[in-house]
């Protein structure tokens, strides 16, 4: 049941997670207790998934990538704010609702459906599906459309690797993602805040971009439920809502898929939703952002500072219209 990602080249987890562990002592003790219980039964290894109760569990075998904090040159946002200030409307529209109401969310076993224009469609057990992949840490900026931002050390795998594994057919031009639909567990889905289940999509070149990852953790640990456990998308040059959480389905298709916020209000949220300080949003000025923890706002960077990696994909497109 328990997965272990171990390689000789491993970075010591302490190099990655040192900061996280100081911050939330109560959670840390809970984790320690779980680990202790595991040791007592002789099953101590790092699972990819949170057990019931959302304990903090370290992931083993996480490789560093070239997207380190040093390379980014910006301070990490603390574990506390990252896990207590979330937009995850499936668990409620308040910023602290996800942390409060996702604690007993069941992320194991987790079934992932991959279908559409691929060579190897199927319904996979997520844990089995992830086994052959190498986890790596990616320190990215996260820019919410509400004009606040964080720097988050994600743990995940490149989406491109998954795509290569399942093999694209020639008419796969887009990939559509879908979040779990389970109003029983996800209290936010009991009301029509959005058209559930949450849907997102990427163009295939966006999905294959080296920056795009499927994340299973942060701060070197298993993904907390409130951050989209067990399996979520991270596309750092787009507004946060594009990075869909708790994914159960990926469908490869020839046409542009519908996306949740675009369906709710197309005037405000386009399919691309690239971070762009020059495109005026009807609700928030996107020119500046408040980094969580800062008092003063800072200017927002084009493509959230990932211009070099992604601008080429949008060459010749009118980003004022295709926002």
């Amino acid at each position: 049941m328990l997965v272990k990602f171990s390689k000789a080249s491993d970075v010591k987890p302490s190099e990655i997670t040192s900061k996280a562990f100081y911050l939330d002592r109560r959670r840390f003790l809970k984790t320690a207790a779980v680990a202790g219980a595991g040791a007592a039964f002789g099953t101590i290894a790092a699972p990819v998934f949170a057990a019931k109760g959302n304990p903090r569990v370290k992931l083993s075998g996480v490789r560093k990538s070239k997207w380190t904090q040093e390379a980014l040159g910006e301070e990490l946002t603390d574990y506390g704010p990252i896990t207590k200030y979330n937009n995850f409307y499936e668990f409620g529209a308040g910023k602290t609702d996800p942390a409060e109401y996702s604690q007993d969310f069941k992320t194991k076993p987790w079934s992932l459906t991959i279908d559409g224009a691929v060579e190897k469609p199927g319904v996979y057990d997520l844990e089995d599906f992830l086994k052959p992949h190498q986890l790596e840490e990616r320190v990215y900026r996260m820019r919410c459309v509400e004009a606040w931002s964080m720097v988050i050390p994600w743990v995940g795998i490149p989406l491109g690797d998954i795509i290569k594994r399942v093999g694209l057919k020639s008419d796969a031009k887009y990939v559509a993602f879908e979040t779990l639909l389970d109003p029983e567990q996800m209290r936010g889905q009991r009301r029509p805040v959005l058209k559930w289940p949450y849907k997102e999509g990427l163009r295939i070149d966006e999905a294959m971009n080296p920056l795009t990852i499927m994340a299973v953790g942060l701060y070197g640990e298993v993904m907390p439920n409130q951050n989209g456990a067990p399996f979520r998308l991270v596309v750092p040059w787009k507004y946060g809502f594009k990075s869909i959480k708790s994914i159960v389905r990926m469908t490869f298709r020839p046409d542009m898929p519908p996306t949740a916020w675009n369906v709710a209000s197309s005037r405000e949220y386009g399919f691309y939703s690239n971070v762009n300080p020059t495109v005026n949003h009807p609700r928030w000025s996107q020119a500046k952002e408040r980094r969580i923890g800062d008092f003063f706002k800072r200017p927002t960077l084009m493509f959230n500072g990932y211009k070099e990696e992604v601008a080429g994909m949008y060459a010749g497109m009118d980003l004022m219209k295709l926002y």
Binding site: L23, T77, D78, G80, P81, K84, Y85, K95, T96, W148, R290, I292, G293, F295
Partner: peptide, 13 residues
């Protein structure tokens, strides 16, 4: 107005 106080991660909001 810190991000870990009783007013949450974004006290200004």
């Amino acid at each position: 107005l810190g991000p870990t106080g009783p007013l949450g991660a974004n006290p200004i909001e």
